[in-house]
Simulated assay, not measured.
Amino acid sequence: MEKREPTDGPNPRIVVIGGGTGLAVMLRGLKRLPVSITAIVTVADDGGSSGRLRTDMGMPPPGDIRNVLVALADTEPMLEKVLQYRFRNGNGLAGHNLGNLFLAAMQDITGDFTHAIQEASRVLAVRGRVLPSTDQEVTLGAEMTDGTCVQGESRIPLAGKQIRRVFLEPEDVRPIPEALVAIQEADVVVIGPGSLYTSILPNLLVQGLAEAIRESQAKTVYICNVMTQPGETDGYTAFDHLEAIHRHIGDRLIDTIILNNETPPAAILRQYAEEGAAMVQPDIERLQAVGCRVWAENLLQYHGVIRHNANRLSKLILELTR
């Protein structure tokens, strides 16, 4: 289907898909701009506080949802610190995140996880909508290149092996209807940034979600990570990230790729190398050869760790809506 030109109106409709810290960082910049945001967030996490609540309360893991809610919230800095607070002591409390417990309480009160997110959004004055990619219980698995399989999102990067593919169990998990409607009505769909195999693909593998993006008239943008992730994308270039997406859900999904082309200082690269990470190389010609439009910019921001510069990235996304 031919992609429509995005609206020239004051509030272009942007759907962002992913999870993890990278998505939350970008949303902090995007919420300051005159756009209408819907965030579709992974619920495949099974580690830490989220994993415990998933097991104890039979609820989807709230951690990625919490991060996105806090990023989009119009709250005082102290309230944000409270929602992100992790208990260090207490029998049963140690390790739990207060924001996760807040969402667990909301689900208990409302009786439904999606409704709980909506009510939490109202309480926190969230600028936009936050939706889980599915409201069904789902487990992420990975098949490695040596033929072994690893079950559980938190265990996959720790396996120390090269990933051939990831998959969901059950495979026929369906997206919530609101997510499909948001994609259908979007001017731009933004995928990432975030962990390729454990934050981005778990959303795209939800049956019907990638198809909805492909059938939508929205322009589709993939934001490539700045650094490789040990245990997931070791040695990956920008093209390798795109190829992994194609391998899982087919091509003709992504129109534009935004990537960083600025090399971090040598001292920072050495610091990351000690942890097994390196800069994702922007192999632009290979991306263009498969029909992708490439926007390569200096998107670096460093405050102890390398992140995308949220303001620069958000302005690039807004430019795509004009």
Rank of each mutant, 00 (worst) to 15 (best):
A310C: 14
E274A: 13
G194R: 05
D64H: 06
I17C: 09
L69V: 04
V35C: 08
L201T: 06
V226G: 00
E169N: 13
R88D: 14
A278W: 09
T256E: 07
R4M: 15
N89M: 14
G63D: 06
L69P: 06
D283M: 08
G152S: 03
G160N: 04
A289N: 15
G235F: 07
E80Q: 12
I17Y: 01
S133F: 12
R52D: 10
L140Q: 00
R214V: 13
P60M: 06
Y222H: 14
I200K: 05
Q184Y: 15
R13M: 02
N225L: 10
Q184K: 11
D234F: 15
R293N: 15
T145I: 12
G29T: 01
M78L: 12
N89V: 12
I14K: 03
I191N: 05
N67M: 12
V188F: 04
G18K: 02
N311D: 14
E275P: 10
I317A: 06
A94P: 10
G235P: 08
R4A: 14
M144H: 12
I156Q: 02
L79P: 09
P10V: 09
V188W: 04
A182M: 04
G29F: 01
D64S: 04
A116R: 00
L300G: 05
T110Y: 05
L320M: 15
A267N: 14
P132A: 08
G194P: 08
H303P: 08
L313K: 00
E80I: 11
L204Y: 09
A104W: 02
Y272N: 01
G58M: 02
Q271A: 12
I156K: 01
A71H: 05
G250V: 09
L180Q: 12
P193G: 10
G19P: 11
E285K: 15
E2K: 15
D172I: 14
I163E: 10
Q217G: 14
R307P: 10
L53D: 06
R214G: 11
E119S: 10
H96I: 04
Y222I: 07
V181S: 15
V221D: 04
L313Q: 00
L98Q: 05
R293A: 12
V173Y: 01
E137S: 13
A71L: 07
P202K: 07
R129Y: 14
S50P: 00
I156T: 04
L101G: 08
I65H: 03
Q136L: 09
R322L: 11
A142N: 07
V221Q: 03
N97Q: 07
W295R: 15
D45Q: 04
Y302H: 11
V190M: 08
T228P: 04
F87T: 03
P177A: 11
S49C: 09
R88F: 11
V280G: 01
G47N: 02
P193Q: 08
Q207V: 14
L27N: 08
P202W: 00
L253W: 00
N11M: 13
M78C: 12
S199P: 06
N89Y: 13
H246W: 14
I317T: 07
Q281M: 13
G63Q: 04
I109Q: 12
D283L: 07
P175A: 11
E274P: 10
